[in-house]
Amino acid sequence: MIDADILAAAERLLDLARTRGLRLGTAESCTGGLIAGALTAIAGSSDVVEAGFVTYSNEAKTAMLGVPSALFPAVGAVSSEVAVAMAEGVLAQLAQIDLAVSVTGIAGPGGGSAEKPVGLVHFGLARRGRPTATTHEIFPGDRAAIRRATVAKALALLTSAV
């Protein structure tokens, strides 16, 4: 899953964050820690990467990141609102983090619907002192391809915000 392109993107992000003195964190659902794994696969990443939260269940999102439980029945776990709350939750939990990315999606092969198809991933990007951004993608392919594309997009979002 962590191929040469992902590792190169992670290394570029870490170098950029390091030069700007920024600390990073992640909140992951459908990627199960792959974003943090890509970042920490790079030697010396500990001076930039502070923490990664794997919150696969709704209960974990609430307990670890403070995502309001009322969001789940209202908009669903795979939503921009939950992605924003996850990213902001990282900043709330750890004062030393400057920038956080979150992902919540449907990697498949099941679990999709007409409104929320397999491949739909919502991203949150929170940086202290700035409004939290959100975006989404519908990635093609199987579970592995969707998760790989999600990691690549998350790294690109972090890099653009550094």
Rank of each mutant, 00 (worst) to 15 (best):
A95V: 14
V67P: 14
G124I: 06
R20L: 11
L34Y: 02
A17G: 08
T40F: 10
L13F: 06
A9R: 15
L34G: 02
S113W: 01
C30H: 01
T134R: 01
K116S: 03
V54Y: 12
E88I: 09
E11H: 12
G111K: 01
A10D: 14
G124R: 07
T55I: 13
A70L: 11
G52I: 07
A74I: 13
S79I: 03
L125W: 10
S45Q: 12
M64N: 07
G52Q: 12
T104Q: 03
L120R: 00
A74C: 13
T55F: 13
L22N: 06
R18I: 02
V90P: 11
S80A: 15
Q96H: 15
P117V: 03
R23H: 11
G25P: 04
R143I: 04
L125P: 07
G21W: 10
G110I: 03
E28W: 04
V67K: 09
V84I: 15
S57D: 05
M86L: 03
A100T: 00
E88S: 08
G119W: 02
P109W: 07
D98P: 10
A8H: 14
R128V: 05
A107G: 00
L120G: 00
V78G: 02
E88N: 12
A51K: 15
I138K: 03
V118E: 00
V67Q: 13
L65M: 11
T134M: 02
S79P: 00
R18H: 11
V121M: 05
A51W: 10
A17V: 11
E81A: 15
S69W: 14
A70N: 13
P140D: 11
E115H: 03
D98T: 05
I97R: 08
R20H: 14
G25H: 08
L24A: 03
G112A: 04
F72K: 00
P68K: 09
A36Y: 11
L13N: 01
R23D: 02
P140T: 06
V90Y: 10
G119T: 02
S80N: 13
M86A: 05
R147K: 14
L120N: 07
A63N: 13
A145I: 05
S80P: 14
T62P: 08
P73R: 07
V49C: 06
G111W: 01
T31E: 01
L22Y: 10
M86S: 11
T104M: 06
I42W: 09
A95W: 10
G110N: 01
V78P: 05
V103K: 02
T62A: 15
G32R: 02
A92L: 12
A145M: 03
T135L: 10
M86H: 01
A60S: 11
R128M: 08
P109V: 04
L14F: 09
A41E: 14
T135P: 04
F123T: 03
R20N: 06
L13A: 08
Q96T: 15
P73C: 06
G129D: 09
V82N: 08
C30K: 00
A38H: 00
G21C: 00
A133N: 02
G44H: 09
S69C: 13
L22A: 14
G129S: 05
R18S: 07
A85F: 07
S29E: 06
I146S: 05
V48Y: 05
P140A: 15
S57A: 13
L39D: 06
P109L: 02
R128I: 08
